[in-house]
Design a protein around this nucleic acid. Structure first.
Lengths: 245, 245
DNA sequence: TGACATTACATGTATATACATGTTGGGATC
DNA sequence: GATCCCAACATGTATATACATGTAATGTCA
């Protein structure tokens, strides 16, 4: 019925499972082509293809003459700038701060529906206010899948952003993002310290990792304090012409 | 000094240059592995690698038993959904319409600065109102580089969206997008037929093609009538079953 | 004319082999 | 002990070959 996976796919799955399971961590040396040949009985070209494709996928770094290693973390960069708000604030030369508004083991029904997970799954919810030089720039209502991040609620989010914590647990597989505009409403306006009639941009995001929904978030930012932007592709003047495919 | 390019890179460059130059257009058949073997005197594995990597890069679609083709529009798909508004409306089962508000050979200074092009370049500006079942869903203020799209102002935008026209002229290289939230202001509110206090989402976008800025646009959409969304990466449980927002 | 087999073509994967390039460590030599 | 050379290893690329799988067109036969 179902064909067996091609050999090179099996090798890729083997290596990326080791990474996903945490047995191989960023910077670790992964099996060389010769190792894979001996372990799986394949030819070198097959092992080479597996490792090369893992490199192209950003999961692995290869250095000629030295070996292959688990890549640091480039995956998230490619995905329309899943921004680390703390880094973005600091990059602008401002001081980053965070206030924890709410922390609970239960999530709102609306958010749960958004995450698309059924009953029997446990959630952690964190409502945070991100500050730049003390001024609120983003309100974040995040719901994490505790099956993916068991210690989500134990984090001190004034030090470690949800982004940092979740990213450390596994590579980002996919992200869905929806942009909307909305008025903040009285409570949000108070938290963000903006007039209730100031339009805010609302980003709802779901991320997948380790073959499950890792977390969902609703991020609200006053449009005059924070903008979501992204560049995809290679902008010519720097990339010397067409991005080499 | 500089090593010659590897063979497979030469093949990739050859094919992607043909695409970039417009000699191969979306849907066109590209040289088969056998063609490349005969033309460049390489082995089949080398031609295979070149075409396979072009496929992974999204430039080419390959069908076993049939051939390889210039990818329809996967490029733009990968770039955070540069949506064709007409298609999006029709996909929702509504009738698409477009009203041309303004058409001129001059662009606003603000837009010109945004495009980042100096003097001596010619621009065409089109202000359009996109309708779904007669209801305005998007206001588009677009400025095209006439060096890239010389016949931009001759288009009948009630039939051909700027997207269609520009996409037909060359492959998308890069896109920059900024999302903001704003109130529409009296004139826009009148055009969009919404209350002046309804928050709208504003997307400013620049696109590059053929090594130049192809066009810039400011797209305004009432948040209750249109949403910008995108998925990046592969959503795990085989793609399906995520609750629509 | 319609059904079916054949053929040509194209891609998908896998192997064995070869040579090139780069790194590293160990051992011989001075 | 310091230096240099070389072997072992790892990746990078290329080739010839093989078989599998899939599509499309063609020709044959009823």
């Amino acid at each position: 019925m179902n064909d067996p996976l091609p050999q090179y796919q099996r090798l890729k799955a083997y290596v990326s499972d080791e990474i996903a399971a945490g047995r191989l961590r960023p910077g670790d040396r992964i099996p060389s082509e010769l190792d894979l040949i001996k372990r799986f009985g394949v030819s070198r070209m097959t092992a080479n293809r597996a490792l090369r494709e893992l490199e192209q996928a950003g999961a692995v770094t290869r250095v000629q003459g030295v070996g292959s290693f688990v890549a640091a973390r480039k995956t998230e960069q490619a995905m329309f700038e899943i921004n680390n708000i703390a880094e973005a604030v600091r990059a602008g030369g401002q001081a980053y701060g965070c206030r924890v508004i709410h922390l609970a083991a239960e999530a709102e029904p609306e958010m749960l529906a958004f995450m698309g997970l059924g009953a029997g799954t446990h959630y952690g919810r964190a409502v945070l206010l991100h500050l730049a030089d003390g001024v609120p720039v983003q309100h974040e209502d995040r719901c994490a899948n505790l099956a993916f991040a068991p210690h989500f609620l134990d984090q001190d989010f004034t030090c470690v952003t949800p982004y940092d914590h979740l990213m450390a647990l596994g590579p980002l597989q996919a992200a869905e993002q929806v942009f909307e505009a909305a008025l903040p409403g009285p409570e949000l306006a108070r938290l963000l310290q903006v007039p209730a009639r100031l339009p805010c941009i609302v980003l709802r995001r779901r991320t997948w990792s380790m073959n499950m929904v890792a977390s969902a978030a609703r991020i609200t930012a006053p449009s005059n304090r924070y903008r979501f932007s992204g560049v995809t592709g290679a902008v010519p003047p720097f990339g010397l012409g067409l991005p080499r495919l």
